[in-house]
């Protein structure tokens, strides 16, 4: 048997999509696997930079990242997005014509307290910043609560908690 990571429904082996919530059932579930087997290589910080130090204290990436790879820890879903403009993270609301670039509805975003427009990833000259949009249940970066509307630099592999939903962010130049 295989289980849908999003809604918990069970299916016999070989099923491809969840008939209840529609998500792909064969999505990889281990974030480690995502790190090691991502089709696009994840860049390493250059010039001996320390990935544990904040981005602004590092020597930075050779070039600004142009792609962000996001792993949703609870469901194992992985999404790759181009870093051209800001990326809105939240839940889709067709009634309000709101279509965030990263929709967390399939990952139980509503149940986990993710707001419709919860947070932004903003490309800057040096890298990428995370901004909480005044969400109802708040945003944490590596377990640190963020003040709303304040940009915080992100580094490769950072953990971001949106309400109760944990994601991990990787960059590619």
């Amino acid at each position: 048997m295989q289980k849908c990571n999003t809604c918990g429904n069970e299916y016999i082996e070989g099923a491809l999509y969840c008939s209840e919530c529609g998500v792909f059932l064969l999505a990889k579930t281990e974030p480690e696997e995502f790190e090691s087997k991502a089709q696009v290589p994840i860049p390493k910080p250059i010039n001996g930079s320390d990935p544990t130090r904040p981005f602004e204290q590092q020597d930075g990436f050779a070039t600004r990242p142009n792609r962000v790879l996001i792993s949703i820890t609870s469901t194992g879903r992985r999404v790759a997005l181009e870093l051209v403009d800001e990326i809105r993270i939240g839940r889709v609301d067709p009634g309000q014509e709101f279509w965030p670039e990263l929709d967390l509805t399939p990952d139980q975003g509503f149940e986990c307290g993710v707001s419709r427009c919860h947070a932004l990833l903003q490309p800057t000259a040096k890298g990428v910043e995370l901004v909480d949009c005044g969400s109802t249940n708040g945003t944490q970066l590596n377990n640190q609560h963020l003040n709303p509307e304040q940009p915080h630099p992100l580094k490769n592999g950072d953990h971001v908690k949106l309400g109760g939903l944990l994601i991990q962010v990787f960059f590619e130049s």
């Binding site: 839940r91 889709v92 279509w99 929709d103 509805t105």
Partner: peptide
Amino acid sequence: IRMEHLTSRLAEAGHMALARQLR
């Protein structure tokens, strides 16, 4: 519940007119 899931799946796949209709 099913409509909510389906709306998201349709929107993700870029079928906005159907997502709006379902909504």
